[in-house]
Design a protein around this nucleic acid. Sequence first.
DNA 1: TGTTTTGATAACTATACAGCGATATATCTA
DNA 2: TAGATATATCGCTGTATAGTTATCAAAACA
Lengths: 117, 117
Amino acid sequence: MSEPGFSPLPPEVLASIAEYFKVLSEVSRLQILNCLRSGPMNVMELTEATGYSQANLSKHLKIMTQAGILSRQPRGVSAYYEIADPKVFQLCHTVCDGIGDRLRQQARQFQAFQGDR
Amino acid sequence: MSEPGFSPLPPEVLASIAEYFKVLSEVSRLQILNCLRSGPMNVMELTEATGYSQANLSKHLKIMTQAGILSRQPRGVSAYYEIADPKVFQLCHTVCDGIGDRLRQQARQFQAFQGDR
DNA sequence: TGTTTTGATAACTATACAGCGATATATCTA
DNA sequence: TAGATATATCGCTGTATAGTTATCAAAACA
């Protein structure tokens, strides 16, 4: 029999999870994802929509494609990117809700503190 | 009437979300979270359980506490940390499942490619 | 009170990476 | 084929941060 609660979770698994989170830990990439919610776009359209440079975008798009978040379809000279895994939005939503809850709770606590004096 | 699909999402919101993901994008922190699944622990217990240095742990614990993921209770000379928001595990699970699905799909595609020759 | 123990912080180094300009690659068209 | 257009990649710089050692602060206890 082993210890009570936790399974040891191999480091490679943790590394994979950490890397996925790292991909989502950049405002620029979240903004790209937000743009792509309305459908596939090519790089030029994304430069206009986000204001980021073409080189910068290209790098971010590659990173997210390698992470399995986006998929790439070359069409003529241009490359269209689209969301490959809609679950990212669920993740963002969960995080966003959590942040909202926390802020509301902090507001309540602060208000109680003000009432104390 | 505005554009079709996407609401613009204020940059501060994206920044908050990105920062939360960044907290989870480190193997050491995920390992700490995994340890704390079995219940609250103090810093010394965590140094033994994870092998990380005390100073390093203290820094990571502070980061996760500020992010609302952990909570801290000083008790005597020591400080006990515990999971404040169990939803992190749901997030990790979602990511982990996604990675698994993707690997299985790649394996299938590779097998099909091998069959082709 | 001084000592011990536990945790937090400061200063530093090394590394990772976002963003930029310049250049390379590939597809289309004249 | 030459030239134009859309992406990708390279080399670089600045910044952020993980990890380390040393030190500090506070509680427990002699």
